[in-house]
Every structure is written in structure tokens, then in C-alpha cells.
């Protein structure tokens, strides 16, 4: 109560000063007054009330019709005051939600963490950056007993929290598969049944799964409706699309997944990506597939990890640092 009275005095003086001098300083202080009032959660009708009281002090013989008109104004401000309070409380809730999501995003990072394997003769680079706080893309490396490297790259159609929840499930199903049975076609078949049973039918997951055999340098792969990968032939300086037929995960429990094999020669690369890479946009224009490959080639002489990072930075800049979709890129390069 005392602070309000103080403010009334303050307001009265400021108003009087302004009425007498019309000077800008009083207006500046009025601005400060309103900001201060907002900090104190004072609603507009209270300001009008202060205004009316100040007027009455300064002009005790204020005509009745003026006074009534101000009461009328005050009445119309009540709903604005309520809307303002509601806005404040929604804003607080939004901040709460934001911080909850950032906790969840951190948790997701821990849950989905995969270690980039150190394999002699193979240079591995991987990057995955979410467009929003939570990532709907996912990649995963597994090394089996024979030294073969399994690589999964997946994309949930959709973004944000639901996509992220879905990915956590995929990761745990994959962890539960036996490590000595890593045929890409079999893995996608099992995942397909898990997704079909557990995920809402409106949610689709695409995945590309590859198995790099370090002994004979072959790459076996299957795809569940995922963005095709690329094979870069360094001798011919030529990119070749690598794809295998298969339905997206979760559509039909009977889906089967074709398995293809590619020989990998020294200096060549296998590129796996999500549509966040191929569907980058510059303004309203989707970039062409060739542009992506051109940029990859431009940085291909670097170690694989640096290559993927440079490619990411290039497209991040191209899109004004605002990713529209989660961006995931993996490169495997045969060194020897």
C-alpha cells in the first residue's frame, strides 16, 4: 500500500510537471514509471486510477462528466489488465517448459550417445545437429567380434519431442540385438517389427544400415525407405548413389529388406546422410543434390571428421544459421 501511495505522489508530480512544461523529460520519466509498474505487476486499470486521483488532487473542481468519462475508461481497461496477467503467467509457463525441454534434450544426448569407433584403416566422421532442441535424427556405431563396423543412420518423420522419444526406443531395441548377428537386412527386419508394434502409425522412421567388413573391405547395406547414400570413387572422381529397396519402418510387419554389397577401394568414401542435408534451402530454393556432393568433394581431402564438420558449417551458413531440419552426415573413408 505504501509503495502505491508513493507512486501516486510520483505520478502526480510527473503529470503536473508535464502539464506545466510539456517537457520531454517528464515523458521519459512516465516511460520509466510504466516499466516500473509492470515490474510490480500493476495492471492498467490501476494506472488509470492513479491518473484520476492525481487529476482530482490537482483540479479539485474537475467537471463531473470528465470524471465519469475516466471511470468509463477504467472499466474498459479491466479486461486488458486480465489479458496482461494471463500473458505473464503463460510466459512463465513457457520458460518452465523451455527449461524442461532443455533438460530432456541433455538427457537425450546422454541416452543416444554413441562412440565413434577407432578402426585401423578406416577413417570415420559423423555429425548430427538438431534443428530445434531435440534431435529426430540418430546415428549409431557398433563393432562386432570380427571387427566389422555396423553403422545406422535414421530419421523420424517429424521433429521435436515426439521424434526424440521415438529415437530413444530405436536405440534401445538396437542395443538388445545380439552382437554377432548384424546382417543389415535382418536388423532392419527386427526393428521394423518393434516399431510396428510400439509406435503410432502416424509416425514413420527411415533408416539406412550398413556393415563395413574390415577384413575384405566390403560394405553391406540395407535401407528402410531412407535417403540413399553415396559411394565416392576417388580414382574416377565420381559419386554413385547406393540404395536398397525396403519399406519405411513401422508400416507393415511383413516388410523385408534387400541387402546389397559394395566393394570399397583405397581412398574411396561411403557417405550416409539424412534429408536435413539434401533438403537444405537457400532462401526458397532447395539446393541440388550435386551441390551437396560438390561441397563434400571440396573438403574430402581432410580427415573424415573435419570433412563432415566443414560441410555442416557450409550449409549452416547457407541457411542463415537456422536449420530447418535435423542434419546428420556420416562419412567412412578407406585409408589403406
Amino acid at each position: 500500500m505504501s509503495t502505491l501511495k508513493l507512486d501516486l505522489e510520483n505520478y502526480k508530480e510527473l503529470m503536473q510537471q508535464y502539464i506545466e512544461t510539456q517537457d520531454e523529460q517528464a515523458l521519459y520519466q512516465a516511460e520509466q514509471f510504466s516499466k516500473h509498474s509492470m515490474q510490480q505487476n500493476i495492471s492498467p486499470e490501476e494506472i488509470i486510477n492513479v491518473h484520476v486521483q492525481s487529476l482530482q488532487h490537482l483540479y479539485p473542481d474537475m467537471p463531473e462528466h470528465i470524471r465519469s468519462s475516466l471511470d468509463f475508461l477504467l472499466e474498459t481497461m479491466i479486461s486488458y489488465g486480465l489479458a496482461y496477467q494471463e500473458y505473464q503467467s503463460l510466459r512463465e509457463r513457457q520458460l518452465e517448459l523451455k527449461s524442461e525441454i532443455s533438460v530432456a534434450a541433455n538427457m537425450q544426448k546422454t541416452l543416444l550417445a554413441t562412440e565413434k569407433p577407432e578402426i585401423e584403416g578406416l577413417d570415420v566422421g559423423a555429425i548430427s545437429i538438431p534443428a530445434k532442441q531435440m534431435n529426430g535424427d540418430y546415428y549409431h556405431f557398433v563393432k562386432d567380434d570380427s571387427g566389422a563396423l555396423g553403422v545406422a543412420i535414421a530419421d523420424v518423420v517429424g521433429k521435436g519431442v515426439p521424434a526424440a522419444l521415438c529415437m530413444s526406443m530405436i536405440k534401445y531395441s538396437m542395443d538388445s540385438f545380439p552382437e554377432n548377428r548384424m546382417d543389415p537386412g535382418v536388423i532392419l527386419g527386427s526393428l521394423n517389427r518393434v516399431v510396428e508394434r510400439n509406435v503410432d502409425s502416424s509416425m514413420f522412421i527411415t533408416m539406412f544400415y550398413g556393415l563395413y567388413n574390415i577384413n575384405n573391405h566390403t560394405f553391406r547395406f540395407s535401407s528402410a525407405g531412407h535417403e540413399p547414400g553415396y559411394y565416392y570413387d576417388s580414382k574416377q572422381d565420381y559419386f554413385e548413389e547406393i540404395d536398397a529397396s525396403g519399406l519405411v519402418l513401422g508400416v507393415s510387419p511383413e516388410a523385408t529388406y534387400e541387402q546389397c554389397t559394395k566393394e570399397v577401394h583405397v581412398g574411396d568414401m561411403i557417405i550416409m546422410l539424412t534429408d536435413g542435408v539434401t533438403e537444405c534451402r537457400q532462401g526458397d530454393r532447395f539446393i541440388e543434390e550435386d551441390e551437396v556432393l560438390e561441397i563434400i568433394k571440396q573438403y574430402a581431402h581432410l580427415p573424415a571428421q573435419e570433412t563432415v564438420e566443414h560441410v555442416y558449417k557450409h550449409f549452416e551458413r547457407l541457411q542463415d544459421f537456422q536449420l530447418r531440419d535435423d542434419f546428420t552426415l556420416i562419412i567412412l573413408k578407406r585409408k589403406v
Binding site: 479491466i78 479486461s79 486480465l82 489479458a83 496477467q85 494471463e86 503467467s89 503463460l90 509457463r93
Partner: peptide, 20 residues
């Protein structure tokens, strides 16, 4: 809940009454 009944931006709803 704030923003539930006032989705059209009209009326303060019951949360408004509680505030008033």
C-alpha cells in the same frame, strides 16, 4: 488453465475471475 477457455482472446474465463 490459462489460455484454455480464452482461446479466442475474448472473455477472461474462470482463471480471470480467480485473478479478479
Amino acid at each position: 488453465e490459462d489460455g484454455f477457455s480464452t482461446s479466442g482472446g475474448l472473455g477472461a474465463g474462470l482463471p480471470g475471475v480467480k485473478r479478479l
